[in-house]
Amino acid sequence: MTATLLSETWWWSYVMILVAGWFATDVWRWLGVFAGGRLREDGELLIWVRCVATALVAGVISKLILFPQGILAETPLWLRLAAAGFGFAAFFVSRQKVIVGVLSAEAFLLCGWLALDALG
C-alpha cells in the first residue's frame, strides 16, 4: 500500500537510484579497495584474483553476444557470433588494433543484417 503511494512520488526513483543503484554498486568497489590493499603486486594470490576478474568480464561479453538486450536480440545468433568472430580475427590480423576489430565486427553485422532484410 505504502509502496504504491511511494512509487508515485517524484523523489522515490532517486531513492532507488541512490540506494539500489549507487550504494549497491559502489559497496563492491569499496570492498575491493580494502581487500585489494593487502595484495602483493607479484604474488600468486593477485594472479588468481586477476583470473577471477578476467573470467567475470569475459562472462559479461559472451552473455552480451549470446543473450543481447533490445533490438539486437532479433538478429540470428549465428550472425552475432560470426560478426564477433570476424572482428576478433581482424583485431589479430591488424596486430591488435582494437578499432579495426570493432569496425570490422560492425561492418559484418550491418552487411549481414541488411542482406537478411533484403532476402526476407
Binding site: V19, A20, T25, W28, G32, V33, L39, V49, R50, L56
Partner: peptide, 22 residues
C-alpha cells in the same frame, strides 16, 4: 532491486582488488 543490482556488480570487487596493488 538492490539485490539484483548488487548481483550484477559483484564483478567490480575482484576488478578493484586487482587494480589496487598497481
Amino acid at each position: 532491486a538492490g539485490i539484483a543490482v548488487a548481483l550484477a556488480s559483484v564483478r567490480l570487487m575482484p576488478m578493484t582488488m586487482a587494480l589496487m596493488p598497481l
